[in-house]
């Protein structure tokens, strides 16, 4: 059976990981390559790097970082942050990235999805969507959830799929950082509406939350950052418990 994927997400700024990490055996917790290697050894199925560098010059560091990651790790990885045109994506692909993730740039210029899918194939294009409930509707937000748009989230996701998104990374900003669990209700709604893989994000606080998201929704993968970085959840333990709950995972 196709396994459910566990995906740690690393925030990177100027070539360094920014969120705190307390793995005891890391020599340099700010080194994304060492952290990535560590996660791959623990059994992570995939990695996402989100580049939050402020300037274009600093993004050049990212290409070197991507090469270093590709040299060291043997699992797929995605790069997101600051990709606004084909040339950005091309540089990352040539440096060894398996997929790229676009968020605000796709909302501002939806044709970017078509262009990327045409140039590199749908499997290369993840559309990341940050959603927040306003009134009784899920609304697409930009800038890390601070800036609401006019778009309803489900409608935007369906458009992204039709334009060539190969995968959806859906982050509930209402759940993100709460450690109260994923937004299983909305994830079910989205997952049932699309025919491409969905990665759940936002709200992971315990192993049970991962069990819940895979049992209550049929999403393909679950992404988290701090619970992994701070060692609150160890991936081998997480996978053992998922397996005990009859959820297919890669051993």
């Amino acid at each position: 059976m196709l396994a459910k994927r566990i995906i740690p997400c690393l925030d990177v700024k100027d070539g360094r990981t920014v969120k705190g990490v307390n793995f005891v055996d890391l020599r340099d917790a700010g080194d994304p390559v060492e952290l990535a290697w560590n996660y791959s050894q623990q059994g992570a199925d995939e990695l996402v790097f989100l580049d939050i560098s402020a300037t274009v010059e600093k993004r050049k560091t990212l290409v070197e970082l991507v090469k270093a990651v590709a040299r060291q790790i043997n699992i797929p990885f995605t790069i997101g942050g600051g990709i606004t045109e084909i040339a950005d994506a091309d540089a990352l692909l040539n440096a060894g990235a398996d997929k790229i993730s676009i968020n605000s740039a796709a909302v501002r210029n939806p044709a970017l999805i078509d262009e990327l899918a045409k140039a590199f194939g749908v499997q290369f294009v993840i559309v990341a969507v940050d959603t927040r409930v306003m009134g009784d509707k899920n609304i697409v937000h930009l800038n890390g959830g601070r800036l609401p748009t006019e778009r309803q989230t489900l409608e935007w996701i369906l458009e992204a799929e039709s334009r060539g998104a190969g995968e959806i990374l859906l982050t509930s900003m209402d759940h993100d950082g709460t450690k109260a669990g994923f937004d299983n209700g909305f994830l079910t709604q989205v997952n049932n509406a699309v025919n491409i893989p969905v990665i759940a994000s936002g709200g992971a606080g315990s192993v049970q939350h991962f069990v819940d998201v895979f049992q209550q929704t049929n999403v393909d993968a679950a992404l988290a950052a701090s619970v992994f970085h701070y060692g609150e959840i160890l991936i081998p333990d997480l996978k053992t418990i998922l397996r005990e709950n009859n959820i297919e995972v890669r051993v």
């Binding site: 059976m1 396994a3 199925d45 749908v122 190969g166 995968e167 699309v194 893989p197 890669r250």
Partner: peptide
């Protein structure tokens, strides 16, 4: 083929 419950592309780790 388009099939309920099976997404395409087939993406991820399979046996």
């Amino acid at each position: 083929p388009q099939t309920d419950g099976f997404k395409v592309p087939h993406t991820g780790w399979n046996q």
